[in-house]
Write a protein that binds this DNA or RNA. Structure first.
Lengths: 175, 175
DNA sequence: GGAGACATGTAAAGGGTTACATGATTTG
DNA sequence: CAAATCATGTAACCCTTTACATGTCTCC
């Protein structure tokens, strides 16, 4: 449902065709959402079939014609319905952690430390990228901010854990 | 892969049968991972077929016999392989946010505020539950801690956003 | 003339969920 | 004796990803 909401949300702001949507998502929104081609095309086709979006073809030369989508009144209604539903769900928070963390302590600290450091710099560079795009995406500022809060928390956790790795208790009681 | 890692990780610590595993996950680990029955049984069967875990039947009365799994040397190897792979991936952080946040501002603050408050108390009660179980799960302390960091970040974000909703800029520039 | 962007898709395979199915045992 | 728990599973359906497929246009 998340993906449908996001696609509708984009189309709703301005008419778009599939390639354009995919391009936009991959270039600007990959930090917050991830949609691959087959999924996008299927969802768009489904929504077009259901009358949530309407489609017009724009031909240029001999290329495959663009399928330009616009949101319909029905689509707008469904968009708001899904949005409300999603807001009302109060989903705890999906695991932001690869579960592998649970078993970190079975490896010796020497092996984990480089991974943690790399993870750290990876998070840092994501944060940098995020700060760069944040201002240009006013409409989406809230999600980027939200992500930013969580990235900062991730950094904090990494630092905290690295420090813990130096304590003598590390790995105790763990098979 | 996450689910396989977690199942193996549990079996690795002590032999278990399917029902027991599902019960354990639903009662103690639902904050950090989510596995349903068909998925668990399928994964267990697959791993048994592949020789990652071995199976012995324990019969008691006329009930369906328990399928008790133990990890095999091969399973241990695969477990460590997957674990290393997962650690090396440096996955950014999966979206911890329902994408609906992106479109929060299309609704008037009066409608959203109650949702945000409910979300807040939901997060708070998850944190409470988490603090309660944390100490008893020494082996899994790291994941719970990780989750805790992110839950605190979520709370911070909620408070920050609620405050922002009162500013005159709220909803500006948003279609 | 070749690389890369433009523009659409599909096929196969795997993962996941919901709901259905079965029956024994324990507990109130 | 009814309800919950123990214990297994399957069927149908949906969603997602990886890889394949096709051809045009633009820019260097």
């Amino acid at each position: 449902m998340e993906k449908q909401i996001f696609l509708l949300g984009l189309i709703r702001q301005s008419d778009m065709h599939g390639y354009q949507i995919l391009d936009l998502i991959n270039s600007h929104f990959n930090i917050i959402i991830n949609i691959t081609k087959p999924t996008a095309y299927r969802l768009l086709n489904n929504m077009a079939e259901d009358g949530w979006i309407s489609l017009r073809e724009e031909k240029e030369g001999k290329r495959p014609p663009r399928h330009v989508y616009s949101i319909t009144p029905k689509g707008e209604k469904e968009f708001q319905r899904m949005l409300r539903e999603s807001l009302a769900e109060y989903k705890p928070i999906e695991r932001p952690n690869p579960i592998s963390i649970a078993f970190l302590q079975i490896f010796p600290p020497e092996e984990i430390l480089p991974h943690m450091l790399k993870r750290k710099s990876s998070v840092e560079s994501i944060i940098e990228g995020l700060i760069g795009t944040k201002d240009h995406q006013k409409n989406y500022q809230l999600v980027f901010e939200h992500q930013h809060f969580h990235l900062k928390a991730e950094l904090k956790w990494i630092n905290y854990t690295i420090e813990k790795m130096n304590s003598p208790d590390w790995g105790k009681d763990v098979k």
